[in-house]
Design a binder for these strands. Structure first.
Lengths: 145, 145
DNA sequence: TATTGTTATACTCTATAACTATA
DNA sequence: TATAGTTATAGAGTATAACAATA
């Protein structure tokens, strides 16, 4: 008898992520945000980064890609970039008040989005899902053995 | 006592999906594929679609976006488009032999990728994860109540 | 008029390579 | 020379709007 088609996890994950990602995009767009901007804001609020390179790593993008987003965010008035007097090669990125307010606005949208996604899930299920996703990410991140 | 910070599921999912998606991209690229092409091939192999519109829906993209990919796939020799004699507005999309072979090549890569992702997971865990992801996607797909 | 699909155009995210400025 | 960051350029994926063909 044919084995019940093991659901291709990659396909399922890709599909779920796409659906959820698009919904998240819409949620953020409604309050004037986007996923990269949100990720960068989180990284900036979470902890101080020694350099933009480090910030780019935290967000998971290349330096040039980060520059691209920082340009947009600076133009939008979310942040300022100033050279570090100690080492003028390094640029210090700082959120403006407007950047702070934007962070909170996006955070509210993200929380609402999360709440919607969690609907009908128990705390245990959330914990399980989070743990499984983390392990899955590790499997894919680790250099092949 | 402070509740242990509930991990923002959206962020975790987005991050995992990005990581896994990029890894999947690389795996498919190594054999000359991409995620949209792979999704379209799956949709074509899985069942007959009445129209490109239906095919686009199955893949989760707009009609014009599908046309864009079909153009590339036709140029690459993966498929042919011919008008349905019954209703000449409708285009019949059919895989060529090369398209079939490409499907199998990408399938092998996708299976290998899946195997890698599943590493260390029990069957039960996979089942659980798949079920949770499905429910999560539903929450996000359903029009707000 | 309605439906199916294509073309034209543009936007976002991403990347690599070459460059500038500092050290 | 090496490091931090930017600029220039390009490519992939997606979308909307206008259009052509067919019914």
């Amino acid at each position: 008898m044919p084995r019940p088609a093991t659901p291709p996890l990659g396909v399922l994950l890709a599909r779920t992520a796409k659906t959820a990602g698009q919904a998240f995009d819409r949620a953020l767009a409604e309050v004037g945000g986007s996923q990269p901007v949100w990720q960068i804001l989180i990284a900036l609020k979470t902890r101080r980064h020694a350099s933009q390179r480090e910030l780019a790593d935290a967000v998971g993008i290349q330096g040039a890609t980060l520059t691209h987003h920082l340009n947009g965010m600076e133009t939008a008035g979310l942040l300022t970039r100033t050279r570090d007097p100690e080492n003028r090669r390094v640029h210090q990125v700082e959120l403006t008040d407007y950047g702070e307010r934007t962070f909170h606005r996006l955070a509210d949208a993200a929380i609402a989005h999360d709440k919607r996604m969690r609907h009908g899930f128990t705390d245990d299920e959330i914990t399980t899902l989070a743990a499984l996703l983390s392990r899955l990410a590790e499997n894919v991140t680790q250099p092949d053995p």
